[in-house]
Design a protein around this nucleic acid. Structure first.
Lengths: 135, 135
DNA sequence: ATAAAGCCTGTACTATACTACAGAGTCAAG
DNA sequence: CTTGACTCTGTAGTATAGTACAGGCTTTAT
């Protein structure tokens, strides 16, 4: 078990040192043990957690939501019912996101085809796609 | 062709009046014509545009990106090549998002199954999924 | 005709998610 | 054993995306 300084973790996870301390304050990562000097000592898997957070962020989840997602693993098994409920809610959330992304993708593909064929692109299929996804 | 006041548009699009003016300043929606009194007069399709913007935002696109997406329709046909390039870039972007969302969804489904079966949920499949999606 | 509701500009404030110091102590390579 | 890179806490500043007035004119319903 190697242990890493904050700077090393930052470099490996491709985030800023300040970001790590910020996430710690926000409860997204655990407070790591310290040496006598006060320096934080991180286990290697913190790097993965940070990368996970970054990825989830790119998907449009807020830090608050990400915290919830990550919390699903550490909750005691006694609240299993609740965990399942929350996981299922996240699943429909994700499914909705996928559906909307798919229709946007199709719209964009139509657009590129129209471009390829040199046809007129007066109407906006992107807009259409996003509009047709109303619930 | 009905024309709508800002308040009506806001109600129909389910956004705030201030948000519409904000989007106008940011160039996400066109400056509408005004009456003599200075009141904005919107065409009906502004409502759809606003809903589109809201949906794109939920997918993790920033206003800047949304502006780009919307701009794809109004660019003159002369830059067709460029439009196609940008559309294709957005498509791979979207595909990546979909892939990551799918693996998150699968992870969450595993989690709910584990819960259903009352099995131990010590490891975090959500985290795993997000981690295994590294490029 | 008058009052409530709506709209105008402009500025200021909020939440989220960082990012950047300041000032002081710590570590490690030559 | 020093010096430069690193870390600490704490506070302040930035970008994004709104949100909330203030003070004043306009519409509309009664």
């Amino acid at each position: 078990m190697e242990s890493l300084t904050i700077g090393k973790v930052a470099r490996l996870a491709e985030v800023g040192v300040e970001t790590i301390r910020f996430y710690e304050r926000k409860g997204l990562i655990d407070e790591p043990p310290r040496r006598e000097s006060g320096y934080r000592q991180y286990p290697e898997d913190t790097v993965h957690r940070l990368r996970s957070i970054r990825r989830a962020k790119e998907l449009g989840f807020t830090l608050k939501e990400i915290k919830e997602l990550l919390a699903l693993r550490i909750e005691p098994a006694t609240t299993c019912e609740d965990i399942r409920g929350r996981a299922e809610a996240k699943i429909s959330d994700i499914e909705q996101k996928i559906r909307t992304l798919k229709s946007m993708k199709e719209a964009l593909m139509k657009l590129t085809l129209a471009c390829r064929g040199r046809g007129p692109v007066s109407e906006c299929p992107v807009l259409e796609a996003m509009e047709s996804d109303e619930r």
